[in-house]
Amino acid sequence: MKILCTSDTHGNTEKLKEVVKSVEGIDILLHAGDHIGDVDAIDQSEFDVFKVKGNCDRGVKGKSKEVITMEDKKILLTHGHQYEIKYGLQKLSYQAAEVEADIVVFGHTHRSLSLNEEGILYFNPGSITYPRDDSASCGILEIKDGKVEGELKRL
């Protein structure tokens, strides 16, 4: 199972289309908020899409968090602003424990992160549009034989 993770696209549908085309064999696309409507501009016939609202998605219908089970792994998908992730992962870790998540995919900081802590993978794909670290990025998760691998892809 190959999962493309994006967040904080902020209206740049052309860049999102480019990123989707650059990753072969996508089974699922996750968008962790801030302009979730951007995914409507891409062809979704080849994969499933899950998306959650971010702080810049005011007035948009949708969920603020989603728990998705794939190949016996629970993924918590959220933007992160409601857990104050700019100040650390503590509040987000409480939510991850509550839903028994194996993986947490989030955004908001515009900084990519792949961190295993206490058996949970915290995965922030960064931003394809306005990165606040060294470069624009997305993330790829692969779930195979009960194991999860996360890769941050610089663009």
Rank of each mutant, 00 (worst) to 15 (best):
V52C: 00
E100N: 15
I42H: 05
E118S: 12
L92H: 02
C138L: 12
S127C: 04
G80A: 07
S45I: 04
D102M: 05
V39H: 08
Q44M: 13
G107N: 11
E149I: 12
K144F: 08
E151I: 10
M70H: 13
A32F: 14
G107T: 09
L155C: 09
K65Y: 15
K144A: 11
A32K: 10
Y122A: 02
G11R: 06
D133T: 11
N124C: 09
I140S: 03
L152E: 05
K74T: 07
S93Q: 11
S22Q: 03
D57W: 07
T9C: 06
K2D: 03
G146A: 09
E18C: 10
D27A: 04
E66A: 12
Y94N: 07
R132C: 08
I120K: 02
L113G: 00
R58H: 14
S135E: 14
K21Y: 06
A136V: 00
S114Y: 04
V60D: 15
Y130D: 13
L76R: 03
P131L: 00
D57L: 06
A96E: 01
I42M: 04
T9M: 01
K51I: 01
G107A: 13
K147V: 12
E24Q: 10
D102N: 13
L89Y: 02
S45Q: 05
H10N: 13
H110N: 12
K86E: 13
E24Y: 02
G126S: 06
L77I: 07
L30Q: 05
G150H: 02
M1K: 13
C5M: 09
Y83D: 02
G62T: 08
D134W: 15
D145G: 06
L121S: 01
V148I: 15
A136C: 10
D38W: 02
L121M: 04
E151Y: 05
N12M: 02
K17A: 14
M1P: 10
K53L: 15
I103H: 12
E118N: 14
H81K: 07
K91A: 05
H31V: 04
H31L: 08
D48T: 10
K73N: 04
L77R: 06
V104H: 09
R154I: 09
